[in-house]
Computed example of a mutant assay.
Amino acid sequence: MTTLEKVLYTAKAHTTGGREGASRSDDGRLDVKLSSPGTPGTGTNPEQMFAAGYSACFIGAMKAVAGKTQLTLPQDLAVDAEVDLGPIPNAYGIAVRMKVSLPGMDKDAAQKLIDAAHQVCPYSNATRGNIDVNITLA
């Protein structure tokens, strides 16, 4: 297990009702209704929030790596994330697929950036060895 050397930020959320409820951050910036995947509800679900969080974090990791290596990133870089939910023995699990779009970048340089970002991204570090994560260059 990895122990934080220093806490830089703590996110806080209060959730009621589980997958058919609501979640709100302590600062009010996040205030969402929740619905189970595949239901007619109007809310989001934890898998969608995980996809959004991981992809945003991964872009941040690419920017951090690029800044340290003086690499210029394309303005229109993007990450499309998919989070699968399904059964595992005696429980449920998730799997992640992300396609990274770095238009105009040299393919080898883009792949090296993705590989380096995958080593520093907090979501990548949290999921490594726990769930299937597949990150590809689009």
Rank of each mutant, 00 (worst) to 15 (best):
Y54F: 15
I59T: 09
F50L: 15
G41C: 04
S35F: 00
A22M: 06
T44G: 06
G60A: 01
G38E: 12
S23F: 00
D31V: 11
Q48M: 05
P46Q: 12
A61D: 10
D27H: 03
R24T: 15
G43V: 00
S35Q: 10
S35N: 09
S36H: 10
D31K: 01
G53S: 13
R24M: 13
G60I: 04
G21V: 07
P37A: 08
A56F: 08
Y54M: 05
G28R: 10
R24H: 10
A52Y: 00
D27I: 02
D26A: 15
A56D: 13
T44C: 01
G21E: 08
A22E: 13
D31T: 06
T42R: 13
S35V: 03
L34W: 09
L34C: 03
D27V: 02
G53A: 11
M49G: 07
G28W: 05
E47P: 07
N45A: 07
K33H: 04
A61T: 09
V32L: 15
D26C: 00
G53M: 04
M49R: 03
F50P: 03
T39C: 02
E47Y: 09
G21A: 09
G28C: 06
E20I: 00
D26M: 00
L30P: 01
A61N: 11
Q48N: 04
T42L: 14
L30I: 15
F58L: 10
C57S: 12
S35I: 01
G21M: 07
E20H: 14
P40T: 13
S25I: 00
I59P: 12
S36A: 15
A61C: 02
D31C: 07
F50E: 08
A56Y: 07
A56M: 10
G43F: 05
G38S: 07
G38K: 10
P40V: 03
A51E: 10
G38H: 05
Q48A: 01
S55N: 07
P40C: 02
G21R: 06
G38N: 11
E47D: 06
I59K: 13
D31R: 00
P46G: 05
G60P: 04
A61P: 09
D31P: 05
S36L: 14
V32N: 01
G53C: 03
I59N: 13
I59E: 12
R29K: 14
A22R: 15
A56S: 15
Y54P: 01
G21C: 10
T44W: 12
G43C: 04
C57V: 04
S55R: 04
A22K: 14
P46T: 11
G41I: 02
R29W: 09
A51C: 07
F50T: 04
